[in-house]
């Protein structure tokens, strides 16, 4: 196991609002991490700082030994929670965009996954339903052969079938060399997938540790632990 991401004393604030405070974390290869917390807890900000879309105010992030930059973006596959795919694109144009822009994109696998996800390659992105957009997003992200995958709220607002398909896709893609970070507040959907969990609230890390250890220590499932942790938040 190698340390893939190391975060030391990270602070991030926007004009008046503190988004992240004193975050210290390490992510090891071969593990799936859950970043759990309510909306506005700092999950997205943390992911965007790692993805080099936002800049921290203080502290250091090292991704495989490098500071976040356009270079690290080459091996970090980030899936934002927003619909980040241009609406004017057709599904096949979005695939081509990824192939053009990312050297690690596996077009063959993407073609397969498009079938599995039941997407029409000639359909325009703007005309896809929420569930279809989410499936396209995950397909594009996961078909990169990246070292680090970060999925921001991959299951939010989706129908059960889309959720299942996306979960199966995440599990199938995961390999022991890489790191997978999934942010969500739909805890029981991902409980069986996570090696480690990080509870984040108000921009601070509240608890982090192995899923199984936490469950054993507290004698409860993650969902109940989540309720307990964020009862006051």
């Amino acid at each position: 196991m190698n340390t893939m991401i190391k975060i030391v004393d990270l602070h991030k604030s926007y004009m008046t609002k503190k988004a992240l405070r004193n975050v210290n974390l390490e992510f090891q290869s071969g593990k799936i991490y859950g970043l759990l917390g309510p909306n506005g807890s700092g999950k997205t900000t943390l992911m965007k700082v790692i993805a080099d879309l936002h800049q921290q105010n203080e502290g250091e992030i090292l991704i495989c030994g490098e500071k976040p930059s356009h270079k690290t973006r080459a091996f970090v596959a980030f899936m934002p929670t927003e619909n980040f795919i241009y609406g004017w694109m057709k599904v096949k144009e979005a695939l081509q965009f990824y192939k053009d822009m990312y050297q690690d994109f596996d077009m063959e696998r993407a073609e397969e996954l498009i079938q599995f996800m039941e997407l029409d390659k000639n359909q325009k992105v703007a005309s896809l339903s929420t569930g279809q957009k989410a499936r396209l997003k995950i397909t594009l992200t996961i078909c990169r052969r990246a070292k680090i995958y970060m999925l921001d709220e991959p299951l939010n607002g989706l129908d059960p079938i889309s959720r299942t398909k996306i979960k199966e896709c995440i599990i199938d893609q995961f390999d022991s060399e890489g790191v997978m970070i999934i942010s969500t507040h739909l805890v029981n959907e991902v409980e069986q997938i996570l090696d480690e969990v990080i509870f984040i609230g108000g921009g601070e890390i509240i608890i982090s540790g192995e899923t199984e250890t936490l469950r054993a220590e507290r004698g409860k499932g993650l969902e109940d632990i989540y309720r307990e942790v964020f009862a006051n938040a």
Binding site: D172, Q192, I193, L194
Partner: peptide, 14 residues
């Protein structure tokens, strides 16, 4: 490992 993990929807490490 992978097949079973996908079909049970659990972590491959598990």
């Amino acid at each position: 490992t992978r097949e079973l993990a996908v079909s049970l929807r659990v972590n491959p490490n598990t």
